[in-house]
Every structure is written in structure tokens, then in C-alpha cells.
């Protein structure tokens, strides 16, 4: 049985920052056809809207760092959150 992403993320401890630590440049995303970010991100943080914009579910972020190399067009502004995830196994 495949386990849904949100269920898997729900196993983790998050202390979500009140402000997003990831931003995308709408002007870049709307023109982007490939949406590499969606394929690379292991947390499903990036979701495409029908009009091509990207919604950022920053609260799902696993802080893997892939966002820093996931977009070749430089749309993603990523910094680490102040709180965020705490792994118990790691």
C-alpha cells in the first residue's frame, strides 16, 4: 500500500514559522512549462495552479535544500526557517 504524501509528512514534527521561508517569482513560474520544482521537491511543497502559478506549501518543507537547485530559472527564493522540522530518527 502506497502511503500518501500528506500522511507521511504528518509523521514528522514541524514547528511551522508564522512567515513563509520560501518564495517564488510569479512572473517566472507563470511562463515555466517544465515545473521542475514539482518533480524534485520530496515534500510536495510546490503545487501548480491551472493558470500556471505556483502555490508554495512551505509548512510541508523537509528542509532538504533541493529548492536551492530545483529551479534552473532562479524563481525559488529559499532560506532555512527559524523553526521548521525536527527529525527524531534522521
Amino acid at each position: 500500500m502506497m502511503v500518501e504524501l500528506l500522511k507521511r509528512l504528518g509523521l514528522n514534527k514541524y514547528n511551522v514559522d508564522p512567515k513563509p521561508h520560501i518564495e517564488v517569482d510569479e512572473n517566472i513560474c507563470i511562463k515555466c512549462k517544465e515545473k521542475f520544482c514539482i518533480r524534485v521537491c520530496p515534500a510536495g511543497t510546490y503545487e501548480a495552479l491551472p493558470d500556471g502559478r505556483i502555490v508554495v506549501h512551505y509548512e510541508r518543507c523537509l528542509e532538504c535544500g533541493a529548492a536551492l537547485v530545483a529551479c534552473p530559472y532562479g524563481s525559488i527564493k529559499f532560506r532555512f526557517p527559524e523553526n521548521g522540522i525536527s527529525y527524531r530518527y534522521g
Binding site: 509523521l11 523537509l62 532538504c64 537547485v69 530518527y89
Partner: peptide, 9 residues
């Protein structure tokens, strides 16, 4: 059961 889901570069 999955106990933890994680990722890293």
C-alpha cells in the same frame, strides 16, 4: 509502518 519520512541533499 513508516515511522519517519525525510529527505536531504
Amino acid at each position: 509502518e513508516i515511522l519517519e519520512y525525510s529527505a536531504h541533499l
